[in-house]
Nucleic acid binder design. Structure first.
Lengths: 146, 146
DNA sequence: GTAAATTAAATTGTATACAATAGATTGAAA
DNA sequence: TTTCAATCTATTGTATACAATTTAATTTAC
């Protein structure tokens, strides 16, 4: 008879390899991101702003699945570096607008090679990468609902 | 013509949904792990020790993809709680052996329902879960090589 | 029109992660 | 055997994450 504790073995967990893959890939970004003086969290925040130019903290958080507790210090750093501005909404002082600066815009050209560089670091066949992308996005879609 | 910055859009990244899925699932462990007073990192360390009873920090780190910088405080916490012991190897004082205690062993019975509870929280079809497991483990296998 | 509820950010506290370094011990090489 | 290199754990410093709370502003109820 099978050990009833089989379900508690690390190798039988689904979350664990996901957690490791996430960490390991993020780690591989480091040398490339160091070159443009960004952390991974700062990088994904910049990605949203490269695309949308302007956004408040709440919206940005819903894109990134991060709350203000995480974003506030990240955005202050990006402001210090001159890549974004932070300004309160004049109609609703609770809301803080984050907007990309020229300097932040310029950073885009220095970042453009990163996705391909990471692609070369991560040894995954195209088919697997596509499937992984598909499944994780499907899962991610279930998180908003509660 | 397609925007050359397309590759920098958040929605075109593979790492991002992986990173979000990992975080969101780990978050879902919290209420269940709170009930047995473990954090996620403590939980996966205990999983290895439930299975192997005894192990040094280096080995444990290679199972968990964590270094001593992360593990040292985690293991000290588990020792405080009485779930493990930490003892230097008498032949090689550099090595620290971690071993499960009776109390740690007993915790296994309180944890045994957690995998099924998480399974009910995560809305993923069996086929997708299997595929995700397969791909992430394949990827994880490429990390050791460098 | 004002009290109560809600909302958005920020703050606080705890727990990871990890790079880099340090400290101690052991192994290897000469 | 003694010096140098390698190994293992711990420490330090930085940056997340997130729960819980706080603060300030706005909205809703009445």
């Amino acid at each position: 008879m099978k050990d009833k504790y089989e379900v508690l073995k690390l190798e039988n967990q689904l979350c664990f390899p996901l957690y490791v893959c996430s960490k390991e890939i993020v780690k591989r970004y480091k040398p490339f991101l160091d070159a443009i003086d960004l952390t991974y969290t700062q990088y994904i925040a910049m990605m949203v702003l490269w695309e949308h130019k302007e956004m408040n903290v709440k919206e940005l958080g819903s894109y990134l699945f991060l709350d203000s507790g995480t974003l506030t210090p990240v955005l202050k750093k990006l402001e210090q570096k001159g890549y974004i501005t932070r300004k309160r909404d004049s109609d609703d002082e609770r809301v803080l607008h984050v907007a990309i600066t020229e300097q932040g815009e310029a950073l885009k050209d220095r970042a453009i090679e990163i996705p391909a560089q990471i692609g070369r670091c991560v040894q995954l066949e195209l088919e697997d990468a596509q499937k992984l992308f598909e499944i994780t996005y499907k899962l991610l879609g279930t998180f908003g609902e509660e």
